[in-house]
Each structure stands twice: as C-alpha cells, then as structure tokens.
Amino acid sequence: MPSWTIGFDADDTLWHNERFFRGTEDRFEELLSAHMDGPGLRARLREAERRNLGIYGFGIKGFTLSMIETAVEATEGRVPAAVIGEILAMGRDMLAHPIDLLPHAREAVEAAAREGEVVLITKGDLLDQERKLAQSGLGDLFDAVEIVSDKTPATYLRVFARHGGRQSMMIGNSLKSDVIPALAAGAWGVHVPHGLTWELEHADPPRDHPRFREIPSLGDLPGLVATLDSRH
C-alpha cells in the first residue's frame, strides 16, 4: 500500500481558469450595456449561476446558458438575437482557450508521485476537463483521473477508498470544494490560494483543524509532504 494518495484540483490549482471567466464577464457587461438600464448585471449573472448549478452543473456550458438567461431577464425579453449569438461565441471562445500552467504545477505533481498515488479530482464538464488535461501535458503523471459532478465528503470518501494509501490529501485553491469536504472525509486538506477565486467557492479557512494546511504556492508542497511524513 502506498504511503499517500494525493489528490489535486485542476482549475486555478494546476492551470489558470477563473481569469477567462472574469474576462468573459467584462465582455458580457459591455455587450449588454447598450440594451439595458441600471447596474447590477454581474449580481444578476451570479444569481443565475447559483440557481442553475443543480441543473447545468459546473463549467463553461452552464455559465454560457446563465449568461443567456441573464440577458433575457435583464432586458425583459428585448435582447436581440445577434447578442445571443455573440454570447454563444464567447462561450465557444472559452472552450477553446489554451492552457496556461501555474508555477510549479509539473514539479508538484512529479514530487507527489514519488510519495504515492496521485489522482486528479476535478468537477465540471467532462469533455472540457478532458481537453484541458490533455493540453496541459500533465496527464501522464496521474495514476487516475476523477471528473465529478460536485465535491462533497462522500465524493472524497469514495475516491480515496478506490485509490487509498495509508494517508490521503487533497490540494486545491477552493476552501469550499477542495479543502473543507476533504477534511470531513478524513483527509488532509491543503489550500493553495489563487488570486482569483469564483465567488461561489468562497469559505472561511478552518484554521483550527489539525489536518488543515495552507501553502503560498505548489512549490512548497514537497516540503509539506516531507514534514507530514516525518510525523508518521
């Protein structure tokens, strides 16, 4: 049995993602400004995303549908068909964006692989996540890939049971999805903050939890694992 099973989040942990959403939101706001009065378009969009998560799930396709829904509601149905077409084109652009790895991503996964089994645990659209992993050049480093509909304690219990070492760890930029449910499942939760994190992924850090750790970047992961290894 390996010493560790180490899970990595993908978006904004191994490669940039949120900045493409923010850029598209800027374009969306500019596009709709000529067709509606009053502020609050982003708040409307965020509420649509929140409302639609249980229907469309996470990812660019659900985000695109939420933009269309917001455009229709914000203009009271007067949004031109050409604008809907531009929103769809923005979604296609996002689905085609190139992958830009975050610093130390490859070294961190390679270092983790020397400690045990490494698993990519990511949520979102299956085809898009598979595309991003293939383009990242990191695919061959993982022993397994788990693309899930949501990240809950039950998700982590199931994944770590399938790929179980003597200890398990989840690494990611989202406290809400990557850290807190992994801790509830009995794993270590390692937070790697990212400058841009989706509003719906915000949560308070569980600083008093004995298995919670925070590191400035993935470059600090090998040292952290070595420190934890020395305690067991």
Rank of each mutant, 00 (worst) to 15 (best):
L200P: 13
R207N: 10
A226L: 04
Q135C: 13
A187Q: 05
A108S: 15
L101M: 08
V118L: 01
R211L: 12
W198F: 15
S136A: 09
D208L: 14
L228M: 09
A187K: 05
M169V: 12
G189Y: 04
L102M: 13
R166W: 06
K123A: 02
S174A: 10
F212I: 15
P205H: 02
G116N: 00
A144W: 03
A111M: 06
Q129Y: 08
R131W: 04
P222D: 01
G139L: 04
V119N: 03
E199C: 09
E146A: 13
S217M: 06
G165M: 05
G195T: 15
L133K: 03
G186Q: 06
P153Y: 00
I99C: 14
E130T: 11
Y156F: 15
G223Y: 00
G124A: 03
R114P: 06
G172V: 10
D150M: 03
L218T: 13
G165T: 10
G164D: 06
G223E: 10
W198I: 13
K151M: 09
A203G: 13
E117P: 07
D100G: 09
F212R: 11
Q129P: 14
V179G: 05
V118S: 05
S136L: 09
V109R: 00
S230G: 12
H202K: 11
V145S: 08
S177T: 07
A111I: 10
E146T: 04
A182L: 07
Q167C: 11
A161T: 14
V118R: 00
G186F: 06
Q135E: 15
G223Q: 07
T155I: 06
R106P: 10
R207A: 15
A113V: 04
R211A: 13
L102G: 10
E115Q: 09
D178V: 09
A185P: 14
D178K: 00
H191R: 08
G186P: 14
F142T: 11
L183E: 02
W198Q: 15
P103N: 01
S177R: 00
L157Y: 01
P181S: 00
D143R: 09
R106K: 13
E115D: 02
K176S: 11
L127S: 14
R213Y: 15
A185G: 14
D143H: 14
V148R: 05
R158D: 14
L101I: 12
L228H: 02
G186T: 09
L183Q: 03
S174Y: 04
R106W: 01
L175N: 05
P206T: 11
W188D: 10
L138R: 03
G172D: 05
Q129F: 09
H163W: 14
A182F: 03
